[in-house]
Protein backbone atom coordinates (compact mmCIF):
# COMPACT_ATOMS: atom_id res chain seq x y z
CA UNK A 1 0.00 0.00 0.00
CA UNK A 2 2.58 2.56 1.07
CA UNK A 3 4.92 1.42 -1.69
CA UNK A 4 2.22 1.92 -4.30
CA UNK A 5 1.41 5.35 -2.92
CA UNK A 6 5.06 6.29 -2.96
CA UNK A 7 5.88 5.05 -6.45
CA UNK A 8 2.65 6.48 -7.88
CA UNK A 9 3.18 9.93 -6.43
CA UNK A 10 6.83 9.98 -7.46
CA UNK A 11 5.85 8.99 -10.99
CA UNK A 12 3.22 11.77 -11.06
CA UNK A 13 5.74 14.31 -9.76
CA UNK A 14 8.24 13.12 -12.33
CA UNK A 15 5.72 13.63 -15.13
CA UNK A 16 4.77 17.10 -13.90
CA UNK A 17 8.40 18.18 -13.62
CA UNK A 18 9.10 16.91 -17.13
CA UNK A 19 6.12 18.93 -18.34
CA UNK A 20 7.54 21.97 -16.56
CA UNK A 21 10.82 21.43 -18.39
CA UNK A 22 8.89 21.26 -21.66
CA UNK A 23 7.17 24.59 -20.90
CA UNK A 24 10.52 26.19 -20.13
CA UNK A 25 12.00 24.74 -23.32
CA UNK A 26 9.14 26.23 -25.39
CA UNK A 27 9.75 29.64 -23.83
CA UNK A 28 13.47 29.17 -24.46
CA UNK A 29 12.83 28.61 -28.15
CA UNK A 30 10.11 31.24 -28.56
CA UNK A 31 11.80 34.11 -26.77
CA UNK A 32 10.93 36.79 -27.83
CA UNK A 33 13.45 38.69 -25.75
CA UNK A 34 16.92 37.46 -24.91
CA UNK A 35 16.06 37.93 -21.22
CA UNK A 36 13.13 35.54 -21.68
CA UNK A 37 15.45 32.88 -22.97
CA UNK A 38 17.84 33.26 -20.03
CA UNK A 39 14.92 33.14 -17.61
CA UNK A 40 13.65 29.99 -19.32
CA UNK A 41 17.11 28.44 -19.07
CA UNK A 42 17.14 29.12 -15.33
CA UNK A 43 13.72 27.49 -14.96
CA UNK A 44 14.98 24.55 -16.99
CA UNK A 45 17.94 24.13 -14.64
CA UNK A 46 15.82 24.24 -11.48
CA UNK A 47 13.31 21.75 -12.93
CA UNK A 48 16.11 19.44 -14.04
CA UNK A 49 17.55 19.57 -10.53
CA UNK A 50 14.20 18.55 -9.07
CA UNK A 51 13.79 15.80 -11.68
CA UNK A 52 17.14 14.35 -10.61
CA UNK A 53 16.04 14.45 -6.97
CA UNK A 54 12.82 12.58 -7.79
CA UNK A 55 14.76 10.00 -9.82
CA UNK A 56 16.96 9.45 -6.79
CA UNK A 57 13.92 9.08 -4.55
CA UNK A 58 12.28 6.61 -6.94
CA UNK A 59 15.32 4.37 -6.92
CA UNK A 60 16.12 4.95 -3.26
CA UNK A 61 19.53 6.09 -4.41
CA UNK A 62 21.00 9.04 -2.52
CA UNK A 63 23.78 9.55 -5.05
CA UNK A 64 21.53 11.54 -7.38
CA UNK A 65 21.76 14.26 -4.75
CA UNK A 66 25.29 15.10 -5.86
CA UNK A 67 24.21 15.39 -9.50
CA UNK A 68 21.39 17.71 -8.41
CA UNK A 69 23.84 19.84 -6.45
CA UNK A 70 26.15 20.12 -9.45
CA UNK A 71 23.24 21.11 -11.73
CA UNK A 72 22.13 23.73 -9.23
CA UNK A 73 25.63 25.20 -9.03
CA UNK A 74 26.22 25.19 -12.77
CA UNK A 75 22.77 26.60 -13.41
CA UNK A 76 23.46 29.57 -11.19
CA UNK A 77 26.84 30.28 -12.75
CA UNK A 78 25.49 29.93 -16.30
CA UNK A 79 22.46 32.14 -15.73
CA UNK A 80 24.45 34.78 -13.89
CA UNK A 81 27.06 34.86 -16.67
CA UNK A 82 24.40 35.15 -19.37
CA UNK A 83 22.56 37.90 -17.50
CA UNK A 84 25.83 39.74 -17.01
CA UNK A 85 26.51 39.42 -20.71
CA UNK A 86 23.12 40.94 -21.53
CA UNK A 87 23.81 43.74 -19.08
CA UNK A 88 27.24 44.76 -20.31
CA UNK A 89 28.11 42.77 -23.38
CA UNK A 90 31.01 41.23 -21.50
CA UNK A 91 31.09 38.48 -18.92
CA UNK A 92 34.26 39.55 -17.13
CA UNK A 93 35.20 43.20 -17.13
Amino acid sequence: MSMMLLSGSLLLAHAMLTLAMACAAIRLLRGPRAEDRVLALDTLYVSAMLVLLTIGMRGGNAHFFDAALVIGTLGFVATAALAKFLLRGEVIE
Binding site: A13, L19, A20, C23, L50, T54
Partner: peptide, 10 residues
Protein backbone atom coordinates in the same frame (compact mmCIF):
# COMPACT_ATOMS: atom_id res chain seq x y z
CA UNK B 1 6.38 20.67 -5.05
CA UNK B 2 6.18 19.33 -8.58
CA UNK B 3 2.76 20.94 -9.12
CA UNK B 4 4.07 24.32 -7.97
CA UNK B 5 7.05 24.04 -10.29
CA UNK B 6 4.73 23.11 -13.16
CA UNK B 7 2.43 26.09 -12.47
CA UNK B 8 5.48 28.35 -12.39
CA UNK B 9 6.65 27.03 -15.76
CA UNK B 10 3.11 27.42 -17.15
Amino acid sequence: GAALTLVGAL
